[in-house]
Design a protein around this nucleic acid. Structure first.
Length: 472
DNA sequence: CCTGGAGTTGTCCTA
DNA sequence: TTAGGACAACTCCAG
């Protein structure tokens, strides 16, 4: 039997057909393409989070549908699977879009070294605007501070790749592989139910959400993005993480719109894409970012771990409404508004004095956009342990933040229904609500809703004290 | 090599 | 009520 000549595309964090450099290249250079997805839990340093698995499941379903059920599914070690496929097909070339997580770089390097003896391999940049090894200071070292990174490394460097138009072709093959359901990505129906209630997971929908954002959200982005009840944030992060849309597309959409609306809004949106670049650059150059403090002096910091506090934080039962609303949004929807991520993070690290590692892992499990670089670097930022981090005395006050950024309490009430009847005056500090008012609305403090687990003022003092003593 | 300006997102106190 | 400064010192980065 003559084996069919094919080019192979390996789908990873690029679950899209549009603006996909590897797929475009294959389409231009090969008559037939096969596409493969491999769930690799052998080489990964950590399993995919619960929420993310659901996203992946639905993304694969969508992708498979869009290529007429030709997606070949595997579970296991990629190298093994490619060798297996080489027995079935006459593979001319294997292509993929690059990923930058330390474990993936390590795996892909070995894979490439072993396979290149047998087959041509080409890799592409699909998910970053600039390759992390190209954005460096004059002395050749990587940036540690965002502003110079962004100004010189992004705004004043060569423009990123323009989005590609898809010219993809696929052929029918009769290779039988696993089904998507065999990957067992949906272990927990409750998660699936919650997530599919709030999110439509497909490449087409991602593009609709982009249109929607550039039509509505962007207009007051620079201010409105701070208010969790407003619709100004893009909520595109899960789509970006899984590759349903590219940063390149967003960058140029923002640039195009920049002349038509107040430029501040598009500029700040672009800088958010810049933050993603920065965090990926940090991950690439400082490979221990997920576990270790980038500032070594924090290795000696007197973190405390109190299971009871940690559980209260995870469940949204700290007694501070804006913190609890955030934690419940996360649990309910697989997402949390950016500002609230900072507030809940600051609370865990500074008011509870719990090591950021615990928060990072919980977010990893619950976030649909759980991303090695962004999640780790953001936690290091909030904890003050990162390279370019919040100063230690910057401690978010959950009462002030609630009043300022959820002034009508819409966000709080949405996720904490038991506080719905509480007068706005006491919504940010329910323990201050007088007994007679509480009785009128049948609100039992300590039963319907917890008393604060720590005192803001004294826990802040304690943190300031511990942080100010942390020196090299 | 030296120099000087700057560094995501806050809070609290004082005048 | 509001605006401004303190909170720290250090490292980073460009010229």
């Amino acid at each position: 039997m003559v084996k069919k000549k094919v080019g192979l595309h390996w789908f990873r964090q690029d679950l899209r057909l549009n603006d996909n450099p590897s797929l475009n290249y294959l389409s231009e250079n090969h008559e037939n393409i096969i596409a493969v997805f491999i769930l690799d839990e052998i080489n990964s340093n950590r399993k995919i989070g619960m929420a993310s698995k659901v996203w992946l499941h639905y993304s694969l379903e969508n992708l498979n549908k869009n290529i007429f059920n030709n997606l070949i599914i595997f579970k296991g070690n990629p190298e093994e699977k490619f060798v297996k496929l080489m027995n079935e097909f006459d593979i001319q070339e294997i292509c993929w879009n690059r990923c930058y997580e330390p474990w993936r770089i390590k795996r892909d390097k070995i894979l490439k070294k072993n396979l290149i003896k047998k087959v041509r391999i080409s890799t592409f940049n699909c998910s970053l605007l600039w390759e992390p090894w190209t954005v460096l200071k004059n002395d050749g070292l990587p940036y540690k501070i965002f502003t110079p990174f962004y100004k010189r490394g992004c705004l004043n460097s060569k423009p990123p790749r323009k989005p590609l138009t898809s010219k993809i072709k696929f052929f029918d093959h009769d290779f039988s592989s696993l089904n998507i359901s065999d990957l067992k990505l949906i272990e927990n129906r409750r998660w699936e139910k919650k997530i599919t209630k709030y999110w439509k997971i497909s490449e087409e929908h991602a593009l609709r959400e982009v249109d929607n954002f550039f039509l509505n959200g962007i207009n007051d982005y620079s201010e409105g993005r701070n208010f969790p009840a407003k619709k100004n944030v893009s909520r595109l992060s899960p789509y970006i993480h899984w590759g349903q849309i590219s940063s390149n597309l967003l960058w140029y959409r923002a640039e195009l719109l920049g002349n038509k609306i107040e430029e501040k809004n598009t500029e700040i949106f672009k800088s958010e894409l810049g933050w993603r670049e920065f965090f990926h650059s940090l991950m690439y150059h400082f490979q221990e970012i997920q576990e270790n403090n980038l500032q070594k002096k924090f290795d000696k910091f007197p973190w405390e771990f109190k299971e009871k506090f940690f559980n209260a934080w995870k469940k949204g039962l700290t007694g501070y409404p804006i913190v609890d609303a955030g934690m419940r949004e996360l649990w309910e929807t697989g997402y949390m508004h950016n500002r609230v991520r900072m507030i809940t993070g600051s609370f865990l690290v500074k008011n509870l004095l719990i090591h950021w590692n615990y928060g990072e892992k919980w977010f990893w499990d619950c976030l649909l956009d759980a991303d090695y670089a962004n999640n780790s670097a953001s936690w290091q930022w909030v904890a003050g342990t990162g390279t370019d981090a919040a100063p230690y005395f910057r401690i978010f006050n959950p009462i002030t933040q609630g009043k300022k950024f959820d002034p009508e309490g819409e966000y709080i009430k949405k996720f904490i229904p038991e506080l719905k009847k509480l007068p706005l005056k006491f919504l940010f500090s329910p323990w201050e609500c007088p007994l007679d008012v509480r009785e009128q609305i049948d609100f039992k403090l300590g039963e319907n809703y917890p008393l604060p687990i720590v005192d803001i003022k004294s826990s802040r003092e304690k943190a300031l004290n511990a942080f100010s003593k942390t020196k090299n």
